[in-house]
């Protein structure tokens, strides 16, 4: 007999693949690793589908699984292999040649985010891109709310600084807000 929570996981998984991949990319900085992370997350989610509480947020549950796999398995394996976690060529960025204006701006934003320390980058992503509350972000990251607050403040300050230096370097792009 299949529990309804299990059905919810199986029916809902497909709706979250792209966001899981993006989170995997934020964590690992590599597209291939992000794909591996999504696959491992799906496998784990299907194995543990009975543990999912019906009616709760499936996306958050899947994010937690992905993060746990990243921290416990893939990242450590990569470090053991001596390959490092993120190298300069495989950071957050767009692929392809569609260099239209919006993507150039987006590319610059991602480059600046990429310069943040990993913990700040992930906190910023969860709170401001995925829209988690401070409390939910803290739970996801398993840190106190005060840590979320200080990471966000530090990230904002760093982004502001990077943005200012970009404006100094290219006066044609004046507007930030």
């Amino acid at each position: 007999m299949i529990e309804s929570g299990q059905l919810e996981v199986r029916a809902g998984l497909v709706n979250h693949l792209a966001r899981l991949w993006r989170y995997g990319l934020v964590l690992s900085g590599r597209r291939d690793v992000a794909e591996d992370l999504v696959q491992a997350t799906c496998v784990r989610a299907l194995e543990r589908a009975s543990q999912f509480t019906r009616g709760s947020r499936l996306d958050r549950w899947l994010f937690s699984i992905l993060r746990s796999i990243w921290l416990n398995e893939l990242r450590s394996r990569r470090i053991r292999q001596g390959g490092g976690v993120v190298d300069a060529e495989t950071t957050l960025s767009f692929e392809g040649a569609h260099e239209i204006e919006t993507n150039i701006l987006a590319q610059q934003v991602l480059r600046r985010v990429q310069l943040l320390p990993q913990a700040q980058r992930e906190t910023l992503f969860l709170a401001y891109v995925e829209g988690l509350s401070y409390r939910d972000t803290a739970e996801m990251l398993e840190v106190p709310i005060g840590t979320v607050m200080s990471r966000l403040a530090a990230a904002r300050e760093a982004l502001s600084r990077l943005n200012t230096s970009r404006e100094d370097a290219s006066p044609a792009r004046g507007q930030r807000r």
């Binding site: 794909e35 987006a106 934003v109």
Partner: peptide
């Protein structure tokens, strides 16, 4: 004022990244 970073810019950049997810490939994997 220094800290009042525009999160719309951030959201826009990451939305564009989401559009690059290899969804067909991931769906086939699933």
């Amino acid at each position: 004022d220094l800290l009042a970073h525009d999160s719309d810019e951030l959201k826009g950049a990451f939305a564009a990244l989401l559009a690059e997810a290899p969804e067909v490939k991931l769906e086939r994997m699933l």
